[in-house]
């Protein structure tokens, strides 16, 4: 793990724009939605994460990454969100009240990070589903369409739609919880 971190730090310090780009593409969405949970404003969330990447570059010779790169990114975003919340509070003269509140309410939680990570994982796995299956699954989950509506729109039987969705769920479960599956099979084989 530390070996991997060393490589990442060296890459960051080299200033190689392509490396920054790949990290950005990988993390931008999940960090932004993670920030959005705290600031409840997507524009501000985007700004916070974009600033993080600029700072990452500017301070690349001065990074204190203790655990691993992923939690470092999440923690940095979290801290910026809290700073933002506090600044807004100061501006609104509710300083004391909200500060107390925020200290109680907000501490960085691995759990929140894991929720965001799971969301990201599910999203990327959905994108990897085979064409028709992905389309139908998204119509149901993203667009909130009923299976009958989907069937009508695509001129398919409702049963086909259901089969495709169950196929999607099966694939997703297999890819998102692979270890569990192996373990389950192993236990069953016993």
């Amino acid at each position: 793990m530390s070996g991997e971190l060393d490589i990442i730090i060296r890459k960051l310090q080299s200033g190689d724009e392509n490396f920054y780009k790949s990290v950005f593409y990988d993390y931008y969405a999940r960090l932004t939605f993670f920030a959005n949970k705290y600031v409840h404003d997507l524009e501000i969330a985007r700004e916070i994460v974009q600033d993080l990447f600029v700072k990452l570059y500017e301070r690349r010779f001065n990074l204190h990454i203790e655990t691993n790169f992923k939690s470092y990114l999440y923690r940095s975003v979290y801290n910026s969100c809290i700073n933002h919340i506090n600044q807004v509070a100061v501006r609104e003269h509710h300083h004391q009240v909200i500060k107390n509140q925020s200290e109680e309410q907000y501490t960085f939680s691995e759990e929140e990070m894991n929720v965001s990570e799971l969301e990201h994982k599910i999203y990327t796995e959905i994108e990897k589903l085979p064409g028709q299956c992905r389309k139908i699954f998204k119509m149901n989950r993203f667009d909130g369409m009923t299976n009958s509506d989907i069937a009508e729109t695509l001129n398919l039987s409702k049963r086909t739609v259901e089969t495709q969705i169950s196929k999607a769920l099966k694939i997703l479960r297999g890819n998102i919880y692979p270890k569990m599956l192996v373990l389950a099979c192993f236990l069953m084989a016993l």
Binding site: I122, R141, R173
Partner: peptide
């Protein structure tokens, strides 16, 4: 539970398109 989790979480993922 895993399937249910995927099911419920995925309904909130439309937001990914907003970025």
């Amino acid at each position: 539970e895993q399937v249910r989790k995927i099911w419920e979480t995925s309904s909130a993922l439309k937001k990914y398109k907003m970025l």
